[in-house]
């Protein structure tokens, strides 16, 4: 293994407060890859790029900068497992880098709570640091190949866009997450509208639930029609959307029609690295993942 990397782990809201099983999987899997996580103590909401940035952009920038300033104080780059938080930090850094006046305003506001801020820290997604290690290296670490498992990969919007502010190869059809999935031995399947949004972002899940759920339902139908064993994500909000949408639709139609397991990348990787399902929080899903475990563990 290469030298140990160290990051400030930013949790956000949905991950620690709704799906701590995802947090758990990150905390057990990343050290196996030589990545150490230090808690970002006292971090707030990122804040949410949809609702809060829409309500008051200056408030959004001040709160986001506070979180970044806490990481700066710890002398580390920030890492998050949520696309929304990732988007907020990337965009908030861009705003102050492009507009020195905005940085001054933010520094003034943060000064009032005794925080220094130079906007020197970087924000990364856990998938970014895993991809830096690379699919080839991951393959070497796999002890339980997930052969035969068919995965519908969902990237999520803010991981990829706006593409000018993201580190990935500029393309409408990225493959980095598919490569990481296939490194575990699983197959990343083709399915309709793979790059479509989950329907939760921008405050739509908060204000227009029927539309939001209907978008998720179409994505789920597309994955199910392509015979996926599970839909995989790298964002706690997309994860929430796919799990709760299925529960809600089943309730509405009065039958358990939707039972597509929703799996977070570090849970999949953890299985391939030989970790036990309970260690990865796979026993805490709203939609049972037993069908996946039966296939993987035999």
């Amino acid at each position: 293994m290469t030298e140990t990397q160290r990051y400030s782990f930013f949790l956000g809201c949905v991950m620690p407060n709704r799906f701590p099983n995802l947090e758990k999987s990150i905390r057990v899997v990343l050290p196996k890859l030589g990545i150490e996580l230090e808690d970002l103590k006292g971090a707030s909401c990122c804040p949410a790029p949809g609702v809060i940035r829409s309500f008051s952009e200056p408030t959004w920038l001040a709160l986001a900068s506070r979180n970044l300033a806490l990481a700066e104080k710890a002398g580390l780059d920030i890492v998050t497992g949520c696309n929304g938080c990732y988007g907020t930090f990337k965009e908030a850094l861009h705003v102050v880098h492009e507009h020195p006046q905005r940085l001054k305003e933010v520094q003034h506001i943060l000064g009032d709570i005794g925080l220094n801020y130079e906007a020197k820290t970087d924000a990364k997604h856990i998938i970014e640091i895993i991809f830096e290690i690379g699919p080839e290296k991951i393959k070497e670490l796999v002890v339980r190949p997930l052969t035969g498992l068919k995965i519908a990969v969902h990237y999520g919007c803010h991981l990829l866009k706006p593409s000018v502010l993201r580190p990935w190869k500029k393309t409408q059809r990225p493959t980095f997450l598919d490569e990481l999935v296939e490194a575990t031995g699983a197959t990343s399947i083709r399915y309709k509208d793979k790059f479509l949004c989950c329907g939760a972002g921008g405050g739509v899940r908060g204000s227009n639930v029927p539309v939001s759920i209907d978008i998720a339902r179409e994505k789920l139908d597309n994955a199910i029609n392509a015979q996926a064993d599970a839909i995989l994500n790298v964002c706690s909000f997309c994860h929430l959307q796919y799990e709760t949408a299925q529960v809600q639709i089943n309730k509405e139609i009065g039958e358990m029609k939707y039972r597509l397991p929703v799996i977070y990348y570090t849970q999949l990787l953890g299985l391939a690295l030989g970790l036990e399902p309970d260690e990865l929080g796979l026993n805490k899903h709203l939609i049972s993942v037993d069908s996946v475990l039966n296939k993987v563990l035999g």
Partner: peptide
């Protein structure tokens, strides 16, 4: 300090997962 705050049910889930009941976020401060 959070758009989606912690609740009693999730505190229990965190405990079962071997995580601190209250995450080290603003929920703790």
């Amino acid at each position: 300090g959070h758009a989606v705050p912690i609740n009693d049910k999730i505190q229990q889930v965190r405990k079962e997962l071997g995580l601190p009941k209250i995450p080290p976020t603003l929920a703790k401060y």
